[in-house]
């Protein structure tokens, strides 16, 4: 932590390490995969990545408070399953089903928040537990089967376009704006940073710190609900394992985006972290590298980038 009075770092040094690595990666792919550096591919990448983007916009808020949210993937799956069940089996109107998805997400978040604030369970265990619970219900509720038979109009949310751009992209921009505004322009945002940076400071003001902490998890749950809407619309079905492993990607993206420690992190940084993962995956795809080798490359590169950032930017202390 830089504490010397009035020291403004030079402009170049203010750029996070991950941005340099990201630029290097873009140059690399542009050089070796001609199809990478095209507008079409960029739109494609952002559309496919919209789900991760939306999830991360919730995860970052939890991460800033010092919590680790490992349930978003499973919660998204569950919300999608419930939504599809409402549409295909209960034949509920679309707006109700969409609302249901958000409610399921929010309730799972409330459960997380309850575990963390009222039962004093460390956040990553609590959310790991919720992950198990949500994933279990998703699998059990339809005997492990995919739910088909959704109304065609739901596809608009996953595959449609609005003002020439894909709807999922708009929704991910909406999610970003939500988190960006919340973190930067509202008292709640200040409290989120206070929860992570100096919880005692917030407690001393007499504000109910535990309630704000709970709300943070609810917010992450709502984002998972929104992501569920997009992914269900895109696939035109709900798969009971669709979100498997997404929480780990989200966690990586958020840390890559500069949230090395409690009280740190920004919405914009998170966008960079998400882009990093998306571009890495997309670039390898465009280069025609087989999936299993991609998986072998992505993990170590992500971890390498995180360790490098932590070492360069000195986030290693607690």
């Amino acid at each position: 932590m830089q504490m010397s009075p009035g020291s403004r770092k030079t402009l170049l040094r203010q750029v996070p390490t991950v941005v340099w690595v990201l630029l290097g990666m873009i140059l690399f792919f542009a050089r070796f995969a001609p199809a990478f550096f095209t507008l079409k591919n960029a739109v494609n990448l952002l559309t496919q990545g919209s789900i991760l983007m939306i999830l991360c916009m919730g995860v970052i808020v939890v991460k800033i408070t010092g919590g680790i949210e490992l349930s978003v993937g499973a919660v998204m799956t569950l919300a999608g399953m419930v939504m599809a069940w409402a549409l295909a089996y209960a034949k509920l109107p679309i707006p109700v089903a969409l609302l249901l998805s958000l409610i399921v997400g929010g309730l799972c978040g409330l459960l997380n928040g309850f575990f963390v604030t009222k039962m004093d369970i460390p956040s990553f265990i609590a959310t790991l537990g919720t992950q198990g619970i949500a994933a279990g219900i998703s699998l059990g509720m339809n005997n492990g089967n995919v739910i088909w038979g959704l109304p065609a109009s739901i596809g608009y949310l996953g595959n449609g376009t609005f003002l020439h751009l894909p709807v999922p992209m708009w929704l991910s921009v909406l999610a970003f704006l939500c988190s960006f505004t919340l973190l930067n322009f509202t008292p709640f945002g200040v409290y989120v940073y206070a929860l992570g940076g100096n919880e005692q400071a917030l407690v001393l003001t007499g504000k109910p710190a535990w309630w704000y902490k709970t709300l943070v998890y609810v917010y992450a749950g709502l984002m998972a609900g929104l992501a569920a809407i997009v992914i269900t619309g895109r696939n035109m079905c709900a798969q009971p394992t669709v979100g498997l492993g997404m929480e780990f990607e989200a966690f990586s993206a958020v840390v890559l985006g500069g949230s090395f420690a409690a009280g740190r992190g920004t919405a914009i940084g998170t966008v960079i972290g998400v882009l990093f993962i998306l571009i890495l995956r997309n670039g390898l795809n465009v280069m025609g590298i087989p999936t299993y080798i991609q998986l072998a490359i992505i993990g170590p590169v992500l971890i390498g980038a995180i360790v490098l950032s932590v070492l360069v930017e000195g986030g290693a202390q607690k």
Partner: peptide, 25 residues
């Protein structure tokens, strides 16, 4: 259905950790 196993384990994890915290307190 074995599909519910994950649900049961998730629940057991949370309860177990909570019990641990509670006893410690």
């Amino acid at each position: 259905s074995s599909l519910w196993q994950q649900f049961a384990i998730g629940l057991v994890v949370v309860l177990a950790v909570w019990l641990d915290m509670w006893i410690k307190k």
